[in-house]
Design a binder for these strands. Structure first.
Lengths: 346, 346
DNA sequence: TTGTAAGCGTTATCAA
DNA sequence: TTGATAACGCTTACAA
């Protein structure tokens, strides 16, 4: 490992001169500058990261904590954060909590499990002296990530910070539910069932609010019998499809693509033709929505937008000397309805 | 930021005593140990990362360089590497080259583009003094990652290192092609077409070799007319399905699931029933293979295995003082045939 | 059992 | 324009 000192010796100058050259200070003669630069180039010298980080107060590093990298939503968000940071000449450090790998779904209501891995990770990022932290949740909910007196700019992507001092970047589920329902109504549907996710889930609740708002605007009475709850997995869609169809509906709003696929399977087995006998809209725009038949009209979650927005947010906080005084805000990234072949105009 | 010095002052002892306690040295009295530990706990002290890294020679950090985090294969591999490292009490640093985000497919044959981002990343990891580096490729090919005289233990996951000094962990494509073909033959098929990927691709070539080997073992003559080449995207499967079916085959081995989905679409539009009129096997076991109808029999790529194996490999190298003398090896992780409903026994 | 002091590779301050 | 030196927070050899 070549060091500043060695460069200085090779050039016959002092280490501070070399340091000044590297850091673009103007108090160096052109001649020595050229000479030193040549040696640096030739030796492939790179400043030692730890020494630099120790001496400077700012590291130009953004810490990213993800609940689980394997979740379908995480990698695109992280990719977008990294793209933004790279662009702004910031480095990133990724910490993968691996919540799902470790505990599957059992950590979900267990605040202690989460904190037991989250706190050491935050401490670690603090000890690295990162300039900002972005927490990337696996699904939307209120999360106690950062204490109220946390000193580092931070934000929560795809989740909502419990502490009001930190910003949250989420998808606009209410608008998503609203848009999808409006679309179905515009296609002539008035009796619209909902294949919902778990009842206490924020995605479920918000999307249902949007559904209800759209119905209200069109003077359609909300009927709770048309709502069925599942667990986001395709099996639950399959299971509830039969109950749903009994209600004399012409369309179903599925709150994710996987359950929509389950509904497809039920209808397929019962000789009901999706896109003809019944219309379906999904949510997520996962790859399967493009390949099941008929291709599923669905609401795309703009994960890259969420990542980019959260990175932008954290950069703003870091530039703002008074970020601690400003109020939190929840940024809502809209979803995008992708029209395919699963909805029939009636 | 609380420091060792402050802890020492609060306890009325010297910093070396505190340091010794933290690092589990035995030359400290129980009384002071308890007292100091209490203060450390109360203050939430964490050693400064940079200072520690600078002082010690080993950092217990593994660097992970990925070609693009957004590729479907990358996150599971990385997740498994991180799991293994966490288990061994190693940290990881992830560098995302974002090759696809930046250049889509144009970097593929452009060594210069790759090196222009790879070299600075490697330099960075060297300057961080990581103990080992794992390069995670986006698809299998020979890659010039690390120079022959590279001093740090390194390995290539999902790709093959050009330098013979570093190990490579890849999937066993030949066996995968062989197994799938054997399975089709066991189901009574003897005229088996292949929907291949790009011709010069290692995955394509190896899987075809396996296909050929299986045919040979069953005394079936290899017929090049039964091989069609695509570009891994579903459109190319759709395009070539018509040509393939003309050849009077009873089954098609698709070299990935996306092209299989394209083939499905063609047959669907032409009233040919997959799983009955024609049998299909895919490759990858992507989520879609479970949801297209009939569910696709396919070869699962064990990405987590690849990640775990590469982490294990690098740990072995790090423990081996003589890793530089040992010869390289290519570890082949087998694929796993997932039987579903797309193959009919005839 | 505890403390002193050197040193890791930088950057910043100040003097030459 | 250049260089000596202190400091960042830690570990470790050695002294007390």
């Amino acid at each position: 490992m070549i060091t500043l000192k060695q460069i200085a010796q090779m050039c016959g100058v002092s280490i501070s001169t070399v340091s000044n050259i590297i850091n673009g200070k103007s108090n160096v003669s052109e001649a020595t500058k050229l000479r030193v630069l040549e040696v640096i180039e030739r030796t492939g010298y790179k400043p030692n990261y730890f020494a630099q980080g120790m001496r400077k107060q700012k590291t130009r590093i953004i810490g990213i904590i993800v609940e689980d990298l394997d979740l379908f939503s995480t990698a695109p968000i992280v990719g977008a954060i990294m793209a933004y940071c790279e662009n702004q000449n910031y480095r990133t450090i990724l910490i993968n909590l691996r919540l799902y790998s470790k505990w599957q779904d059992t950590w979900y209501n267990d605040e202690q499990k989460l904190q037991s891995v989250l706190q050491p990770s935050i401490k670690e990022l603090v000890s690295i002296k990162v300039d900002g932290i972005i927490y990337v949740a696996g699904h939307c909910r209120v999360i106690n990530c950062f204490p109220d007196d946390f000193k580092i700019p931070a934000a929560v992507a795809y989740g909502i910070s419990k502490s009001p001092r930190f910003s949250s970047i989420v998808i606009d589920d209410e608008k998503g539910g609203y848009d999808a329902t409006k679309y179905l109504i515009s296609m002539g549907h008035r009796k619209i069932g909902v294949m919902a996710g778990t009842p206490d889930n924020l995605h479920t609740m918000k999307r249902l609010m949007g559904y209800q708002k759209a119905l209200f605007e069109e003077q359609i009475l909300f009927n709770p019998d048309l709502i069925r709850y599942g667990d986001w997995m395709s099996e639950s869609g399959f299971r509830e499809a039969g109950n749903l169809i009994k209600e004399d509906i012409t369309a179903i709003l599925c709150l994710n693509d996987l359950m929509a696929a389950g509904v497809y399977n039920y209808f397929y087995e019962h000789g009901i033709e999706v896109g003809n006998d019944i219309s379906l809209v999904g949510y997520d725009n996962k790859e399967i929505s493009e390949y099941i038949r008929p291709a599923l009209t669905t609401n795309e979650i703009q994960l890259k937008e969420i990542g980019a927005e959260s990175a932008k947010m954290i950069m703003n906080m870091m530039e703002d000397d008074c970020w601690e005084c400003s109020t939190n805000n929840v940024i809502k990234v809209p979803c995008r309805l992708v029209i395919r072949d699963s909805v029939k105009k009636i």
